[in-house]
């Protein structure tokens, strides 16, 4: 969620028990907006301000921050991260209309799968 810290809208994580955790990697580049978590909370996507609006994804497992500049230099307005972090939806302005565009993140991030999800390899067809 977004909370004003020293007057600057800043992302924080709130646990189900009500505990609040700050995100050290995101102490700067406010205002923050549109936070979105993956299934197990490994990835946190949000919009930051670095001269202009910039979507970023934080990998909370290793602390790595992935900036996601948009083609054409457009500004992201809102975003939504798929629960498994394979895709990201971004709301942008285009010729006076709101648009939603999808990005494939599968080459950038490991998936964050639901707990207990069964994993199988593809069927080994054509193997004798």
């Amino acid at each position: 969620m977004i909370t004003p810290l020293q007057g600057r809208p800043t992302v924080q994580l709130r646990g189900e028990d009500g505990s609040i955790r700050s995100v050290p990697q995101l102490r700067r580049h406010q205002p923050h907006s549109s936070p979105s978590l993956s299934w197990n909370g490994r990835y946190l996507a949000l919009i930051t301000q670095r001269g202009k609006r910039l979507a970023v994804i934080l990998d909370r497992l290793n602390g790595r921050l992935h900036p996601l500049p948009l083609p054409g230099g457009r500004d992201p307005i809102r975003l939504s991260l798929a629960p498994d972090a394979r895709r990201l939806a971004l709301q942008v302005a285009d010729k006076g209309q709101w648009r939603v565009e999808l990005l494939d993140l599968s080459e950038l991030l490991e998936p964050d799968r639901a707990t207990g999800q069964t994993l199988t390899t593809p069927p080994l067809e054509n193997i004798r």
Binding site: L79, L81, P83, A89, Q91, Q97, R99, L102
Partner: peptide, 16 residues
């Protein structure tokens, strides 16, 4: 497809 489907689209919520 998303561009053709609607004049304007906002507030995305993405699932699998």
């Amino acid at each position: 497809l998303l561009r053709q489907n609607a004049g304007s689209r906002r507030e995305p919520s993405l699932a699998q």
